[in-house]
Amino acid sequence: MKAMFEYIGIDKTESIKVRHIVQKNIDIPWHFHPEYEIVVILRGAGNVFIGDGMDRYEAGDTLLIGSNVPHVFIDDSHNKEKVDENGIEVVVVQFRSAFFSGFSDLKEFYNVSSLLNKMQCGVKIAGKVENAIATKFCVLAQLSGLKRITEFLHILDLIGSYKNLHLINPIAAASILPNMRSHRILKVIQFMNNNYHHDLKLAQLARLANMETTSFSRYFKHHTRKTFTGYLNELRLSYACKLLIEGSLSVTEICYETGYNSISHFNRQFKRVYNLTPKAYRARFYTQH
């Protein structure tokens, strides 16, 4: 399915657009826009698709989405067991990259610039900080003028300082994370991105990095925060999600296209990560679109 362009319509006299939305469900299709977007979930739950990644969201979560990154929120309104009769309630903040023009290279804006880069992967704020951040955005919706701008910058700086932000799209993350800027690790990641559908082995990647297998295994985990097997599996499943959304291949074809040699193994791995079978994942995406 091709993502639709959405015109946001931020007034030229505005720096950011903040909306407090209460409605029965989320009915915006798979879309993209040049503005950055932050969505605070106050009520409701469902699945969010950002680029090639997918994650679950619920009340208290905050999702951050980069410029021109296709995305869609599919709430649980179609699921009678999970639906909230009160509908959904969100705070949506949207802003242009031009808002930071002339500031992004300043040392004082390091946290904000780093966060904007990570937003291209899709960011989910979870854990102990999620409710505190959600509360701050709710307060932001009540402010205006210079107070709104200064509070907004403070929130972005605060989020940018967090060390363990959850990135939803692992493929986009490969060239963005600060600890993956080493030429050697980027060479390995690029090779994996181009050859994930082949039978890749740890020793093969170690040779590519000109390292011993044991040393490379530690090196890879240090830079990606994942084991080689875990990262490869996540990479394959992320591409599988993309193919499922595009809808042109069968589940069996996608299984082999993404490097799995057993449909049962593919189904188990997919369900372990997404808590859905590939068939159910595709059906959920198309339920409202």
Score class of each variant (00 low, 15 high):
2 K>R: 06
3 A>K: 04
5 F>Y: 15
11 D>F: 08
16 I>N: 06
17 K>P: 00
33 H>P: 00
35 E>V: 07
43 R>H: 07
46 G>T: 15
53 G>E: 08
58 E>S: 10
64 L>D: 06
65 I>Y: 03
67 S>D: 12
75 D>K: 11
78 H>A: 11
79 N>R: 02
82 K>G: 02
86 N>Q: 15
96 R>P: 05
121 C>G: 08
123 V>M: 05
127 G>I: 05
128 K>N: 07
128 K>M: 14
129 V>H: 04
133 I>T: 07
134 A>I: 03
135 T>S: 06
136 K>H: 04
140 L>T: 03
144 S>D: 05
149 I>L: 10
152 F>I: 02
155 I>P: 14
157 D>Y: 01
168 I>A: 02
171 I>P: 03
175 S>G: 09
183 H>F: 14
185 I>F: 00
186 L>E: 12
190 Q>W: 11
193 N>F: 14
194 N>V: 11
196 Y>S: 06
200 L>A: 03
206 A>F: 07
207 R>G: 06
208 L>A: 07
208 L>S: 02
212 E>R: 14
213 T>K: 01
224 T>S: 00
225 R>K: 15
228 F>N: 03
228 F>C: 00
230 G>Y: 03
231 Y>T: 05
237 L>T: 12
237 L>G: 00
247 G>D: 01
248 S>M: 08
257 E>V: 01
258 T>E: 06
265 H>T: 12
266 F>L: 04
267 N>Q: 14
268 R>T: 10
279 K>D: 04
288 Q>L: 12
289 H>E: 12
